[in-house]
Amino acid sequence: MQRTDRDALVRRAVSLMNDGVCDRVLAWRRGEFSSDVSPGVFTDTESVEKELVRNFFCGANLSKYLISETEKTEKKVLIFLRPCDSYSFNRLLSEHKFNREKVYAVAVGCDGTADIGKLKRKCGALSDIKRRGDKIIAESLYETNEENEENEENEANGAERVFDLEDVLSERCLSCNLKNRADCDEIISDGGRDAVSERFFEVRRIENMSSEERYEFWRGEFSRCIRCNACRDVCPACTCEKCVFSNPSSGVENKAAANSFEESMFHIIRAFHVAGRCTDCGECSRVCPQSIPLHLLNRKLIKDINILYGEYKSGESVSQISPLNSWTENDADPSEVAELLERSRSK
């Protein structure tokens, strides 16, 4: 595991632009607060030098933007790929979503990213937030207690609160353990965080609920959905040019679900549609403004695929063939599927 220095990224971007290799850079741009970082497209070296950041708050993956960005230039688009993003990169490539010739891919290692939602719920009004090793230091504008109620006794100008990194780390980073799998033009560094939790831990917890509990759990989660479709729009496996749900001529277009049944159907259909293609990048859960743990639906399907057709991770290579698009003699027989899945629950 290696930290990637911001300066290394800036240097590479500037020189590739100056050499005329690239004229667009996909990276992260600083915002209003230290925790406010956007995925950004840079088109000049000056803004690269001034605005590019690489830190704990760079949540967004970038490879899906290659679909549109490669169309906008005659030269190459420079992209920095973190380990998890390299899987999405491969996935998109294997579906021919962009022209590899028009991309200059640089691998960068990653030391974890924040779950901004968690962070915000933990902190009061932030004036600054920093990472120091495995601690997160949040400075508030004024003192609040644990519930973020203001603290009458101590009307200080600011207050510092310290968290363990793992408490505010994104779910996907907790179980990362990834290496860059894309065929990059260059490697600045490689490797994601060492996993501290097991990837299917939460899935198993939900599998072990009674069916009523499980139904209630998802009903509760989906009831908050506002159908903004951010989960779909960010997904590297959701690449239909026009999603049926946004296409007025499809007959099933819906800007809002007519009822809760429809609401669940949208998410379940989407999960099945990306099964075998979902790269487990965690972007769906990261972007959801209502903090719905969508990745758990996809992880459940990943887990089942692993059991029925053998270990498989979408995006490991460009040439891989999804077990759902192929048949081998070792595939589970339809008659044993139910039993195999049942048996796997307790594991």
């Binding site: 497209v41 159908r227 403004p289």
Partner: peptide
């Protein structure tokens, strides 16, 4: 151009 470049068009901003 720069401001809109990475907008997903999700509409979350309009719904909230």
């Amino acid at each position: 151009e720069e401001l809109s470049a990475t907008c997903l068009g999700c509409g979350a901003c309009t719904f909230v």
